[in-house]
Design a protein around this nucleic acid. Structure first.
Lengths: 241, 241
DNA sequence: ACCTGAACACCGTTCAAGT
DNA sequence: ACCTGAACACCGTTCAAGT
C-alpha cells in the first residue's frame, strides 16, 4: 500500500489509543508493535509521527495533565497570540480581578479545588502516573499548571520561596495519592496477616474491598490537614490584627 | 562448568547487585541478561533463585523498605517466635511502656521521625519508588511498617478508621516526595519558559540547581503542615479540658 | 541443586523501498 | 510525506543437558 492518499495516522489518534491501552492493560502493555497493531498499521509507521517511544509517552502524559481544571486560578490565557489580555505584570489579586472582571478565589479554596481536579485527572489513569511524576519537563500543559499555581500563590501574598515549596508539596501529595490505591495494596487474603507477625493488621484483608472510600477519605483528610497547616503558616507570615 | 561445588549466586547477592544497577542506570537498565552479566553468570541462572523478574523486584523493594526506622513506634518484635514479649493486646500507651520499659513517643513526634526516615530510605533509591508505591503486597518489611504505624496511631487514641487514613495519606506524601525531584523536573534551559506562555516561571530554570534545598524544604514544610493539621483534628476528636 | 547454551516469542528502532 | 517489510540488537522465560 505504501503511502495512502489520506494519512492512516495522526498524533492525536495515536495518543488516544496509547492512553486507552495503558489504562486497560498497564504501562508494560504499551509496546510500539502492539500499539501499531491496535491502530491497524505496522510498527515502524509510528515513527513518522513521533521520534521515539518516549516522545509519544510525553504526549500521552500531557494530554492527561490537560484535563486538570485551572480555572480557579483566574482567567485562562489564550493559547494563541498571548499578551493582549495579559496580566503578566499583575502584582496582586486586585490586578487580576480588574483585568478579567472575574472573582478572585482565596488561595486555600483555589488550592483545594485544584488538588481535587488534579487528583481526579490522574486517578483516572493511574498506570501513567509514574511517568507524569517525573516533572513537567517541556510539556506545555504541565508548565501551564505549574505557572498557574505558583502565580496564584504569589499573588495571594505568599513569598516566592514558600510558593515554590507549596507547589512542590501539593504535587507530592497528589501524585502520591494517584500513583496507587493504598487500600488495594493490601492483599484480600486474610492468611497474609499472621497475628504473630502483624498484630494490628487483623482487619487489613478487608481494605481492598473498601478501596474507593478508604483512598478518597485519606485524600480528603490529608488535603484538609495540609490546608489547615498551611493556613497556620500563612497567618504567622502575615499576622492579622 | 555446569554446577559449581559452591554456588555462584545467592538471593542476597542478586538483590544487592540489582539495586545498584537500578540506582546507577534506572529501572529500565535492569534486564535479567544485563544483571546476569554483572554477576558473571548466564541469564537463565537467575531463575534458580527467583521464579520471575517480578519476584526479584519484590525482593529488591523489600530490602529498601527494610532500611526504614520503626523504633519510634516502640519495641521491635523479634523476627523469630513472636508472642513472648508480645504487647499485641495492649490497648494504650501505658501497656506498651510497661511491657518494654521503653518511653512511649507521642504520635506527632513518632510520625515526624518515621516520615523523615521513610523518605530518606526511598529518596536514596528514587528509581525503584514506582514499584514500591504499588503497596505492601506480601512483602514482610512493608507489612511490618504498616503494622507499626497503624498500631501506634490506634494506641495513641486515634479511631481505627482515622488511623488507616493517616497511614495512607502519609504514604501518599512520602512516596510522592521520593518519586521524583520537584526541582529537577524543571529544565535548566531558560528558553523553555517563554514569558508569554508562562508569565510566572521566569526563574524556574534556576530550580534544578537548588534541587536539594527546594525538595527538602518542600518536604519539611508539607510534613509540618500535615502534622499541624492532624493535631487540630486530634484535638477536635478528644478535646482537652 | 545449580549452572549452561539453544530456543521461543517478544521488544525499540533504522533503513531502503514504494507511492 | 507516509506507509511497508526486512533487519539489528535487544528482551523474559523455558528447557534439555551437564555435573
Amino acid at each position: 500500500m505504501a503511502r495512502p492518499r489520506t494519512p492512516l495516522l495522526s498524533r492525536e489518534r495515536i495518543v488516544v489509543t496509547a492512553l486507552r491501552l495503558i489504562d486497560d492493560e498497564g504501562l508494560d502493555a504499551l509496546s510500539t508493535r502492539r500499539l501499531a497493531t491496535e491502530l491497524s498499521v505496522s510498527g515502524p509507521s509510528l515513527y513518522n509521527h513521533f521520534a521515539t517511544k518516549d516522545e509519544l509517552l510525553d504526549a500521552v502524559v500531557d494530554s492527561v495533565i490537560g484535563e486538570v481544571d485551572l480555572s480557579m486560578f483566574g482567567p485562562v490565557r489564550a493559547a494563541g497570540p498571548a499578551g493582549a489580555a495579559g496580566s503578566s505584570g499583575a502584582l496582586g489579586p486586585a490586578g487580576a480581578v480588574a483585568a478579567a472582571g472575574e472573582a478572585w478565589t482565596p488561595w486555600p479554596e483555589a488550592l483545594r479545588d485544584w488538588a481535587r481536579s488534579y487528583r481526579a485527572a490522574l486517578a483516572a489513569h493511574p498506570n501513567i502516573v509514574p511517568v507524569l511524576a517525573q516533572g513537567p519537563g517541556r510539556r506545555p500543559n504541565a508548565l501551564r499548571l505549574a505557572d498557574a499555581v505558583f502565580g496564584h500563590l504569589v499573588e495571594a501574598g505568599w513569598p516566592r520561596g514558600q510558593a515554590t515549596r507549596i507547589g512542590a508539596l501539593m504535587r507530592y501529595f497528589v501524585t502520591g495519592s494517584a500513583l496507587a490505591s493504598f487500600a488495594a495494596g493490601f492483599p484480600a487474603d486474610a492468611e497474609v496477616y499472621d497475628a504473630a507477625d502483624y498484630p494490628h493488621l487483623g482487619e487489613a484483608h478487608r481494605l481492598a474491598g473498601h478501596r474507593g472510600t478508604v483512598d478518597e477519605g485519606a485524600f480528603e483528610t490529608g488535603l484538609e490537614a495540609l490546608l489547615d497547616g498551611l493556613a497556620l503558616r500563612f497567618e504567622r507570615l502575615a499576622p492579622r490584627p
